[in-house]
Simulated scan of single mutants.
Amino acid sequence: MVKRVGQKKRGKYSRKPKKIILIGTEGNNQTEKNYFTAFNQTQSEYKINVAKGNNTDPEGVIHDLLKTAKQEELDLKQGDILACFIDVDFKKGREKELRAAIKLARQNNVSLYLSNPCFEVWYLLHFRYSTKPYCSNDEAIRDLNSYISDYSKSKDVFELIVGN
């Protein structure tokens, strides 16, 4: 269609688009994905998306996050946010991986959140305040089972914890 002099432009947005929080998580981890995407139902300021990727090492997760942010053309200056959630776990060499990830996150304006030892500690904090140092993922999950008796990894429990 040829544009004529004085013709109005079509397709102008009258509403301001939501800011995006893009989240990076380890591998195909559904636990964090289920938790954070459920927040889209509870608030209207941000749209929460999860970055694509299968990396399980902390630096790889951040690289996946940055790649998705570029593909989706996020604009950090306009209020979009990059956040990465990594389990500390207790495995050999993890400390070195985490230091490198912290450095990479700082260089790229990524907010890095470490779950020590695993993300299930976040769920526990919905039920009680705790500074308990967990020695294993299994120990944290055992404590969580006292609040969510049929809990299993990757189970969507948002409806059970949202009021806490």
Rank of each mutant, 00 (worst) to 15 (best):
T68R: 02
G6V: 01
N116A: 11
I81M: 04
R128E: 13
G60F: 01
M1F: 08
D138W: 09
Y147L: 03
V110A: 07
F36Q: 09
L76A: 08
E97A: 08
S111K: 15
Y46Q: 02
Y134T: 01
E72A: 11
K67N: 09
I81N: 11
C84E: 06
I141C: 00
V110P: 02
C118H: 05
K8Q: 03
V50Q: 01
T25R: 15
S136I: 03
I148Y: 01
K70S: 03
S154W: 11
E26N: 06
I20G: 07
A101Q: 01
K47F: 12
L160I: 14
K96A: 13
K70H: 12
F119T: 11
R128C: 02
L98Y: 04
Q43M: 02
N34C: 05
L144M: 00
L160E: 11
P117V: 03
Y46V: 08
L98W: 04
E73C: 04
S146E: 15
N55K: 08
K18E: 05
K70G: 07
Q41T: 09
I161N: 02
Q41M: 10
K96S: 08
K33L: 05
Q78M: 11
T25S: 11
Q78F: 05
Q7T: 04
V121M: 03
N54I: 04
N164I: 14
R106I: 09
L82P: 02
N54Q: 15
L22T: 00
L125C: 13
G24R: 04
W122Q: 08
N108I: 05
G93R: 09
K96R: 11
E59T: 04
F85N: 01
K18V: 08
L104G: 08
C118I: 07
S149V: 12
Y129G: 15
